[in-house]
Amino acid sequence: MTVSGVRLPSVSMTFEDDELYRDITGFAQDTPTWVQHTAEVWTEAGILVFGALFVALWWRSRRDGPRAFAIAALAPVATAVAYVCSELLKSVLDEERPCRSVTGAVPSLAECPPTGDWSFPSNHATIAGASAVALFLVRRTLIRLAAPLALLMAFSRVFVGVHHPHDVAAGLLLGAVVAATTVRLCTRPATRLAEAMRASSAPVVRRLSGPGPNAATAAASAPSHRRR
């Protein structure tokens, strides 16, 4: 990694899960073509699915209290922080991609990233782990959907041959820890910001933050005060 023109020392990573990698990628090669294509699409499209869930929860949380809204708004931010942490680690821990380094492995389903695009930890798995935890913190029942999606997305990175199993395991853990920590540290200031946004006179700001639960309650009770 280079900072201000200074090359920081890197660390070469070595783990012993090559046999598991060969087993998974060998199994992948034996699956029907439609399964292989689905895995190749999902390994990238999963990020878009999590993004859509973030947007839907942000929109719904506009009628919740300021704390609930703040956590919903923090969810994608926490995921982005986890991704940055993953990138920083990848720039220091120079682990070659298994599609190039594992001897005796079948060709990867996905194109092998170039040298310099290091393997540890998996960015996709980090995003998946962070997204699952962030969505759980917004609405706990979502863990039933988010956890399987995150695990499937992480597994797909090994299935298509571009990551070692330990890459995705570390990514899931890193993402989960960073997301939980980020939300915990930022909830209080984000809640104060949400309250300030809802008190703002700027229409755009109020539109982004939503009316909150009080406006919804007032709108629901308004007809009862009308004289008939």
Results as ranks from 00 to 15, higher is better:
48 L>E: 06
51 G>M: 11
51 G>A: 15
52 A>P: 06
52 A>I: 09
52 A>H: 14
54 F>G: 01
58 W>M: 14
59 W>K: 15
60 R>K: 13
60 R>Q: 14
61 S>G: 15
61 S>M: 09
62 R>H: 09
63 R>E: 12
63 R>F: 09
64 D>Y: 08
64 D>H: 13
65 G>L: 06
65 G>F: 07
67 R>G: 05
67 R>C: 05
68 A>P: 03
69 F>T: 00
71 I>M: 09
72 A>D: 06
73 A>G: 05
74 L>V: 09
77 V>H: 03
80 A>S: 13
80 A>G: 15
83 Y>L: 07
84 V>G: 10
84 V>P: 02
85 C>T: 13
85 C>I: 12
89 L>A: 02
90 K>H: 10
92 V>C: 09
93 L>S: 03
95 E>C: 04
96 E>H: 12
97 R>Y: 11
98 P>D: 13
99 C>H: 09
99 C>T: 08
102 V>Y: 01
104 G>L: 07
104 G>A: 08
104 G>R: 08
105 A>I: 02
106 V>H: 12
107 P>F: 12
108 S>D: 01
108 S>T: 13
112 C>H: 14
112 C>D: 08
114 P>K: 15
115 T>W: 13
118 W>C: 01
118 W>D: 02
119 S>P: 02
119 S>E: 05
120 F>S: 03
122 S>V: 04
122 S>A: 10
123 N>C: 08
123 N>K: 06
124 H>I: 02
127 I>R: 00
128 A>G: 05
129 G>N: 00
134 A>M: 04
135 L>S: 03
135 L>I: 04
136 F>L: 10
137 L>Q: 06
138 V>G: 03
138 V>E: 03
138 V>Y: 05
140 R>Q: 11
140 R>T: 09
141 T>E: 15
144 R>Q: 12
145 L>K: 10
145 L>N: 05
146 A>C: 14
148 P>C: 10
150 A>I: 03
152 L>V: 04
153 M>K: 10
154 A>Y: 09
154 A>E: 05
155 F>Y: 14
155 F>N: 08
156 S>E: 14
157 R>T: 04
157 R>M: 13
158 V>T: 07
159 F>K: 14
159 F>P: 00
161 G>Y: 10
164 H>S: 02
165 P>V: 10
166 H>R: 10
166 H>Q: 10
169 A>S: 14
169 A>W: 04
170 A>S: 05
172 L>K: 01
173 L>H: 01
174 L>E: 00
174 L>Y: 00
175 G>Y: 01
176 A>T: 00
177 V>Q: 02
178 V>D: 03
179 A>Y: 01
182 T>W: 07
